[in-house]
Design a protein around this nucleic acid. Structure first.
Length: 154
DNA sequence: GCCAACGTTGGC
DNA sequence: GCCAACGTTGGC
């Protein structure tokens, strides 16, 4: 079992949006970065733990606990000319972009970026490292456990 | 809106 | 394969 942090812009798909979806499950559309795609394709298994993170918003932070709910499969938005995620260079017989389904298990308080940064034990958390822009990053078990503890101590 | 950091593109 | 130019991310 592996752990991940997945960023979503709340204007696109907030944790509340995901919770409102059928089975609280959403297809994680729009990943257009090879490293992030490879994490989904090569690293993720159904049942992996996911920290649901809000980015590009007033208060960026971890806002929910989720799980990986599918293996990777082609992201349909890459073939949709009307989609902002359309990729004209991707071929149906050889899709370039993949996604997984993500199921929200619980909404949490917002464990904000400044609070995350305040914990020396989280220093190595990938999203806290300088210049990191990856929308999907692996999370070490020790970080996962600590973050759970912080979320439980509201 | 700014800007640092990083990824991608494309000419050579 | 190098690398400059450009585009994007995302916090502030």
């Amino acid at each position: 079992m592996n752990y991940w942090l997945m960023k979503s812009e709340p204007e696109e798909c907030s944790v509340d949006d995901a919770l409102a979806a059928k089975n609280a499950t959403v297809p994680w559309v729009g990943v257009r970065n090879y490293q992030a795609r490879n994490f989904m394709r090569d690293g993720m298994q159904v049942g992996d733990g996911v920290l649901f993170y809000h980015s590009s918003c007033a208060e960026p932070g971890i806002v929910g606990i989720a799980r990986v709910a599918s293996t990777a499969y082609p992201d349909p938005t890459q073939f949709d000319p009307a989609s902002p995620y359309h990729d004209p260079k991707s071929k149906r017989e050889d899709p370039r972009w993949l996604l997984v389904d993500v199921q929200v298990l619980q909404k949490t308080r917002n464990l904000t970026l400044p609070e995350l940064r305040s914990h020396p034990a989280l220093e190595d958390l990938v999203i806290l490292r300088k210049g990191n822009r990856l929308s999907i990053t692996p999370v070490e078990a020790r970080h996962w456990r600590l973050i759970h503890k912080l979320l439980g101590s509201v």
